[in-house]
Nucleic acid binder design. Sequence first.
RNA 1: GACCCCGUAGCUCAGCUGGAUAGAGCAACGGAUUUCUAAUCCGUAGGUCGCAGGUUCGAAUCCUGCCGGGGUCGCCA
Length: 589
Amino acid sequence: MTSLIDELSEWTGSAFEDLELPKEMGRVTLSDRPDLAQFQCNGALAAAKLAKKNPREIAAAVVDKLKAMPAFSEITIAGPGFINLKLSDTFLSARISAVAHDARFGVPLATEPKTIMIDFGGPNVAKPMHVGHLRSSIIGDSLQRLITFAGDKTVSDIHLGDWGLQMGQLISEIEIQMPDLPYFAPGAEGPFPKESPVSLEDLEALYPQAAAACKIDEDRKELARQATAKLQSGHPGYRALWKHFIDVSLSAIKREYQLLDVTFDLWKGESDVNDLIDPLVNDIEAKGFSEISDGALIVRVERDDDKSEIPPLILRKSDGSVMYGTTDVATIQDRMTTYDPDTVLYVVDQRQHLHFEQVFRTVNKIGLADSEKFEHIGFGTMNGTDGKPFKTREGDVMKLFDLIAMAREQASKRIEEAGLAVDQTDEQRAEVARMVGLAAIKFADLSNHRLSNYIFDLERFTAFEGKTGPYLLYAAVRIKSILRRAKDEGLDGEVETLSVTSDAERGLVLELLKLPDAISGAYEKRAPNILCDFVYAVAQAFSRFYSMHHILSEPDDALRRSRLALCALTLGEIELVLGLLGIEIPERM
RNA sequence: GACCCCGUAGCUCAGCUGGAUAGAGCAACGGAUUUCUAAUCCGUAGGUCGCAGGUUCGAAUCCUGCCGGGGUCGCCA
């Protein structure tokens, strides 16, 4: 099924074509003036310029061709040549009935599926996950759900930060604090102890100590650099110790993603391409793409038409170790051979934009892959209510785990205040609070355009009223409740055709028919906020419908069933879209 | 200094492949309920779309300059 707006565009496009005007000019959009029309086409104005004719004349000619179609109840020309369209209730009724009987609610499935990889620019091993990881997780997860639904094949990779300087900082810190450990014995080849010498808590304490020491002391930093280089070149003790870090942190990282309900196909990291690096770097060198500069091996990626200076990508530092630019290039090589993706999305903070520009140019230059295949899906920062980067009351970085807990507690408080879920067990209430808290966070994050910075205000996000996750859950749960009662009381039944008889019904139907456009818009722009706007508009239209018509008490059997079917369809679309946003809906609340 | 992102109602944000009267939510004010879960619905008020030019029949949207906020600019990620 094509989207309604595409189908209307097809019709008006053909009319333009008949007049020997470009078909694209027939593009139909939602009306800017809902008081006058449901849809509009502004093509006559552009066509007038092209054909050097009067726009109203062109509009009149187009309208003449469309007049015969029974789908339209009203076609008018307004102003300088806007074509205003209204669809007949009969047409809308047939259309919405078809959508109601379609498992995909009229959303087309990709005819030529692509393979799209999603790189989440994952957390660093040994560092606690903080609020900075929230956006990449939520946005990336929504994109993977959306793209999968659209019919493409997605392969998501958490892509852990496990091979950079932070590893050397940590290893050297432990070596300083616990020099007697077997990992540090000169010439030690192993085997080394199976038990980790450090716990997760140790790691979380050690990393800040190491980072702080390196920041103020150049000699200390040099130790970290050396440790990094030795780790990467295969020092057995360091490798063994490093492996412990990974194992210990991974359990924590997995726990956090489970709380967020975010999953990955691949749990790879920077270190996974280590074996590819030497051959790759040698090859780049041999082919003459690189050069030595200040002791480092670099690839120049600047171009003549650059507006600003693009620094080179450093393949190998002067101490011989590699940074994430090199592992990112090697990872692309790995992905191209293993998955041959059409596109790779990097869901990473916008501040790293230059880095990705360098990486994409590098792979293009060395002939590894066309840089067009790669997209940096950047996002802005999450700020506190003071407009500054989000911190705890004490001024520390807020841990992700704590943030999720806060949202759950806040949701729990709200539920209690509102006297909801009183007939449920404590466990059920806790589960509802979990879902409401998560919905609050996710919906608030995703409803902002990803590039803009946004203010994290839990009070507002968990509010009962307005454009929030909890409101949407409530709307969905209310529909579930009606459907449940209808079933229990035997009031439902099969419905062939949904009727469109009132303003409230028409309004809801028109919203529901926008689903394919919301999906394609969000897909093309990689912008989940479009889904948020859509689902909120549907919920609002439903609330209006719900307040206008008392469904279960409707005496006319056919009308009641039709309205119940409309409820079911509304619920279906809300469930689908909230699902694409990674938001779960409880059965009742 | 160069470059990137942002600047839209009192607040938080959409809209930005140019089109008619710039939209939501919150807050404010006025209504609706013996409810199918009112975490709701209806209505009113609120905007020189940062500023100044330019392109265009038409600019929040495109171009140029400036102002303000954030960010980035070779051996961190």
